[in-house]
Design a protein around this nucleic acid. Sequence first.
DNA 1: CGTCTTTGACCAGCGC
DNA 2: GCGCTGGTCAAAGACG
Length: 359
Amino acid sequence: MDADWDLFAVVRSCKSTVNKPAASSGEPSNRPSKVNTSGCNCLASLRLEQNFDPFSFRSMSRASLEDSRQPVLKQPDPTTMGTDRGKNPIILSPGGGGANGQQQQQRPRQRVQQRGVPKTRRRSNKDMNRTVVSHVTDENSCSDQWTWRKYGRKAIKGTSYLRHYYKCSSSAECTARKHVTLSNSEPGTYIVTYTDDHTHSMPDSRKSRAGGSRMNKLPNADNNASSSSSSFISPTAPPPAPEVSATATATATATNVQNAGDNGAKEGENVNIAALVNDDGEDIFMIPNAQFYDYLFEGLGELVHGADSGSGSGHNWPAFGGNLSSWGSSMSGSSAGSTAARSLWSLTSVILFILRQDK
DNA sequence: CGTCTTTGACCAGCGC
DNA sequence: GCGCTGGTCAAAGACG
């Protein structure tokens, strides 16, 4: 397979009856934040904003995310929720500190930092640069090519779960951060919020993994491994790569069901099928009952265009290392097909979530 | 030794 | 102005 495989494949709705809000003027600002038509009801939960990177997940610790599944309280206690002050009710070890939940020796914890030293500890929203939110349905989708270091977690008022804070560990100057919270209303759905951009290129591979092995350790890893669709996709062990050509494109055609057995629809009935096809028009995979608006994929269209243009600058799409044109070649450590498979898998995760919302 | 997670403490933004 | 809240720091130990 071509080593410079770029993911040009996009997914679009195959239902011609989808009402596209407004004209295809490509003005994101004119788009409704929520589409209250029968055409699509997925946007309420999947907000696509500038530089939104639904596939930018990789290095999130599975154990950490699993920890986020632990409710802070089975029944949130209003007297303790929403405040830290060392009163986190999920605390298991009395001494604080300690990796992987192992109990550590209790010792007084002294604050070394001097009071009065001016240091911005919290940025205002206006100082936040490009905060984006995505919802992912499983923990394997909460990891990405970037290297993140967890620097905190906190019980958030109004949710029973902890919010985990990560900062980019690839560069000390990089201000990119993200936090992950298990959705209170959508169990199994993680709300990932990104803040700021990476100020560096995507690392070819993770730095030293010293201490990193714990990331895959889970007390109940077996239980999770057997839990249906949430199989963990290791960055180094991607799923089998579908045979997708480098120039796979999307189609948007009305689809009549010709194989009623596939999705339960009757023959001749119109259904919505999200199809990922290659440039030969062959379906790579199809998802029934999916509805998308074209504008969801306008960015992807730009992606394809940018990559095709060969301008050298490429397109700033963080999931692909900030430069789609070089994305494939930058992933020298893995086969292009595997890279594609990971991206497809991540894309599938997003789609599956949309489908859930569409029910 | 370098990097990781954990977690108490600190602090600034915000609402009242 | 005050208290609540969320975001961040940094010490400590774990891990390879």
